[in-house]
Amino acid sequence: MQELLGRIARLDPSASLGLRVIACFDELMVGNVNTRALLAAAASLAGCVAGFHSETPARTVRIDPRGHHADDVRPEVDPAFQQDVSDGLTVWLERNGARQPNDAIVLERLALAVRVRHGRGRESDHRRDLSLLLDPDVDVQARCVSAITLGLRPGMRYRVVCAPLFAVWPEHPQGPEDVVATRFGAIHALVLPASAHEVTAVPSGVGVATEVEDLHHSFRTALVALRLCDPPAVGSVLADDFGGLIGLLADAPDGSFQPDVALVDAVMAYAWGAETLASVVRSHSLRQAAREAGVHHSTMQSRLETVNATLGFDPFEGYGRTRLGTAYLVWRLRHSRVLDLPAPTAAP
């Protein structure tokens, strides 16, 4: 995987490779893999042998970058490439030569993962500053400390950008970034000044602007925005475009009782359903909806008769517009495939 990290760096010289190393070990910890697998990942990421020693029982394991056992003779290792995990446990990288850019982060995450695997560190909160900052359950004082540690200034406004780790970044704006565990798996989160609206990453969601103590809200709206993406047609979504509505969506529990969404489902069962609703929610009249959809207005009229009958209300009348718009967005979230990763089993 060292070679793959090199490719990513060539594609995007400003990409944070450390973030991928972190995400990789986060997944390994969630997957509860054994010491050999942890050493194999470290060796593969670093491109050199990774080792482990425990004093009791006395055991040395050395794994090469292809995941194979090297002999179990513990070599002399430069202390700079060795880390004590906990009492009697040590891990190291057998780097001959100069320190490589990811060595420190690989060694740190390997040590943490080995500690957890050996039952030495389950109780404390190992999360890093950005995860703490974006968690509303963390005390506000602690969140502000994390913000300052990350170089953010209280009183200034920022927004959080969310993207999956497989997003493509033609340009990479600079700001504090990390991977954050969510129920959708590891998400790449990046904090930018409030003035940053446009992000070219596909797919990505840009949250609303808030002060640092409310960035957890920006994060939640960014996650909703990301889930509204539908690449390649919709590559990036800006939470601001939906105003206060996106906050309601972010805070609505999954699977909440939404009878209007069932009605939208019934409309979507028609071959023309998705295209028609997409143009109706963007229009103020039948004629405009017909133009948006690129169909004749008489075609749109007959479709709308079916829509009105199915919904039981007129989407161009009074609260009908709000009901359809809201139900349409909830429907899109419930059918979102953009983060369709197998959910880790132990993420919050």
Binding site: L11, R20, A23, D26, E27, V30, G31, P164, L165, P232
Partner: peptide, 21 residues
């Protein structure tokens, strides 16, 4: 996905997105 492989996707995804259009 196997746990070790899912971890690998955190790296692979950066150069080989799941959906190639």
């Amino acid at each position: 996905f196997d746990a070790e492989l899912r971890a690998g996707l955190a790296v692979v995804g950066g150069m080989f997105p799941p959906t190639i259009t």
